[in-house]
Design a protein around this nucleic acid. Structure first.
Lengths: 232, 232
DNA sequence: CGTCGATGATAAGTATTTGTTTCATCTAAG
DNA sequence: CTTAGATGAAACAAATACTTATCATCGACG
């Protein structure tokens, strides 16, 4: 379970994200002020910091700067900045404050999740989202978003790619359709449709995995799907 | 398949949820009274209890309290309370009755599903069952729904898997066919046939357990079946 | 706006699982 | 040893779940 710390004085947002991110094996903690934030970083050692720009005491830029300055204390804590307006983003990037990413408000929760995943993947944080090991002829370079099957580059859509990544992170784990939907879309969606099946079908097709004895994605009847890790 | 027990005297709601939740790999059982509820908890060992506040005999708060008090009997059964009005929710939370969540009536079925998922995710492994100790060469990883026999992954169907899990949770316990069916198929499953025998036979076959001196599943003549624990 | 690609929904077709029947075989008890 | 009842397993039937083609929808992009 990833620990996410949010420094933001908007209580509502905190609650929202707490609930929302819990679906993604993330536990959210909220600090309303920077000083409380620093405290909690030391205590909690979160895996990611989400930092609002508009804060009491001092603004988010300043907080970010401090954390980077005292890297001996705070380590390479990945930081995602929430900016009030898109224009400011240039400033952040330009000033090289050391944030790992930024996201202009208002944002789609789904977008946030995607960013978080990206950051955690980039920064090489182990516990959940490590680099993806080549399995059975599939190599994934997450930094380039490139997938190779037996040496040939595959052209995958966003969903297909995310699905593959998810599968490869947990080889041999059986996912229910529900789980897959939640992880990929972030909604406790009504699942009357075969959306997941369709997606799997498309990915299988691109992986050339259409035979009856699948090489990659196995159907677990009455349950879901499994990405095959070792050989059976 | 998750087993959900509802204690609620509103017949309509029970039916509705039975139908609705069945789409989400949940099997719903309804107890109209608390006393019947307690009975069914023991018999059924549900994965989640949905508890209405307005009940005959005693109210839902009381039921919740009792269950938590007798945790040795009922374990850490997750409880979702249905409250008639939003205002009461404060009371529930404030009193720390031990419910895991609450939901004010009337509610959207979809919202209920989301809550259920959240609770199940929070309170334990998503795949419902506690850890299962390796026995006699069989290892089960419930979070991955993976079964290994002497190191080799087994390909089990839903029923076979559920049966194995059930057996391994109670090694050396002799189950009657009735018990097995109740646990696997729901409480009022009436079978006019030898479905259990067939199921056992199939599982035995996949376990390579067909000899006359079984390694895993022993037939207790005139009674039922026993999963053999450590020593023979 | 109109096109294109990606994704979601639907439904017909197919596959697998599960329940039932049946019969050979087995067990316990006299 | 015999028998009535119980069990194992094969074969078939019914129920259930999955696949995929096709169409609809949505959003990005010019």
């Amino acid at each position: 379970m990833k620990q996410i710390l949010i420094i933001d004085d908007d209580e509502k947002l905190g609650e929202l994200l707490t609930q929302y991110l819990s679906r993604y094996e993330m536990q959210v903690h909220v600090a309303m002020t920077p000083s409380r934030g620093f405290e909690m970083i030391k205590k909690l050692k979160p895996d990611l910091l989400i930092l609002d720009v508009m804060l009491p005491e001092k603004d988010g830029f300043e907080v970010c700067r401090e954390i980077r300055a005292k890297s001996s204390i705070y380590g390479q804590l990945p930081i995602l900045m929430l900016t009030a307006h898109a224009e400011v983003t240039d400033r952040i990037v330009g000033l090289e404050l050391g944030a790992d990413d930024y996201l202009p408000k208002p944002f789609e929760p789904r977008e946030l999740v995607a960013r978080i995943h990206n950051i955690l993947r980039r920064t090489g944080d182990d516990s959940t989202l490590r680099d993806i090991k080549p399995i059975n002829g599939i190599e994934v370079d997450t930094s380039r978003r490139e997938v190779k099957l037996d040496g040939n580059v595959l052209d995958l859509t966003t969903m297909e790619y995310e699905l593959l990544i998810l599968f490869m992170q947990y080889p041999n784990k059986t996912f229910t359709r529900d789980e897959l939907m939640n992880r990929l879309r972030g909604i406790d969606a009504e699942l009357f449709s075969r959306a997941v099946d369709t997606l799997v079908s498309r990915l299988r097709h691109k992986l050339g995995d259409t035979s009856k004895t699948p090489r990659f994605i196995k159907t677990v009847w009455g349950r879901g799907y499994t990405f095959i890790g070792e050989q059976i």
